[in-house]
Amino acid sequence: MTTVNVQGIDLGIESFGADDGPLVLLAGGTTMLSWPDALCERLVAGGRRVVRYDLRDSGESTTADPLAPAYTLRDLAADAAALVDALGGGPAHLAGIGVGGMVAQVAALDHPGAFSALTLAGTRAVAPGPPDDDLPDHDAAAMRRLFARTTPDWGDREAVADFAAAGARILGDDPAAARALAARIWDRTPGTAPPVQMANQLGMVFSRLDCAPRWRERLPALKVPTLVVHGLENLFFPVADGEAIARAIPGARLLVLPEAATAIPAAAVPQVADAMLALG
């Protein structure tokens, strides 16, 4: 792991594979660990150079004020394009998961020359907040249960891991995997200041971003091969969100994972990796 400076900020990255392989850039959601190690390794076995990275205000990337970000969604999109240039591997296959999938959509639209393919996992085509009338909102019952919980002491590693495991049970993800992931994120977070830890664990930075202008209406202009991956059991971004993206992007392939929710489960890694490799 290291950092790369782009646009005056440092982005935490982790590289896998030989430097001369075709580049697959994995945008975190919000930290790079949203992309499973096993997926990175399988892409490398397929001959790719893989770089996963932390969005601003998360992981090893520059941390300023997670509760009041002084940048926009389009700045995060520009970060992705600038990172490809800095890594010297363009055009790259860009993949984004969750909020990183929103970054990836805007990046591919705003910087088409930087990217040769696009993978969008567990995301939607409108910013945080009320969705369009034809799109589903977050599952109401699950959201009530999530927000009814007492927040942990963000400076207590075990309490944070317990909190993540409980949230995974509500959302239909693997609690043990969520616990382990939360502990790894906690360990990588710079300092134990509660706002910083909370931002890393929950992606709170993204909910406060300026995400204007809308980009959903621009999706038909995308010209790169696109894979849309979505868990059938995703209660946060229901599968209809993924279906809408796949309909909007010409030629996009929709891969629905029957037993997945918000995360990519270990059992689905081979299928997802093979579908990504098939994009070229």
Rank of each mutant, 00 (worst) to 15 (best):
T119A: 13
A70H: 12
P270N: 10
L120H: 05
T72R: 15
H230L: 11
V84T: 04
P152M: 10
D65F: 12
M1D: 01
R208V: 07
V84F: 06
T2E: 12
T119Y: 06
G122R: 02
P91D: 03
A248H: 05
R218G: 08
F206K: 00
G155Q: 05
E158V: 05
N5Y: 02
N200I: 02
A114F: 08
V229G: 05
P131I: 09
D174L: 06
L120S: 03
P250G: 11
T151M: 15
R247F: 11
R208L: 15
P250Q: 08
W154C: 08
L55D: 02
L279T: 01
I185R: 09
A252Q: 04
L222R: 06
L227P: 00
L73G: 01
L26S: 04
S61R: 03
D37W: 10
R188A: 12
I245L: 13
Q7A: 15
L257G: 02
A182T: 07
E14G: 04
P270R: 08
Q105D: 06
R214P: 03
R188S: 08
P130D: 14
F163L: 08
D134Y: 12
L94P: 00
A125Q: 03
R214W: 04
A77S: 15
R56A: 02
G251F: 11
G155I: 07
L109N: 00
W215R: 03
T189A: 02
D173N: 14
A263D: 03
D173A: 09
P238E: 01
G59E: 04
L67W: 13
P66S: 11
A161Y: 01
A275R: 06
V269F: 14
P195D: 05
V24D: 03
M276F: 14
R157P: 00
A178V: 02
A45C: 13
L94W: 01
A266V: 14
L73T: 03
A95G: 10
P130G: 11
V99Y: 00
A161E: 05
D79T: 07
P220V: 11
R208Y: 07
V229T: 07
T72P: 11
P194C: 10
G89S: 12
D57P: 09
G172N: 13
A176W: 11
L120M: 14
M102V: 05
L209T: 05
L222F: 13
L87Q: 02
E243V: 14
I13M: 06
D75T: 14
D210C: 11
V106T: 04
A178G: 04
G96W: 00
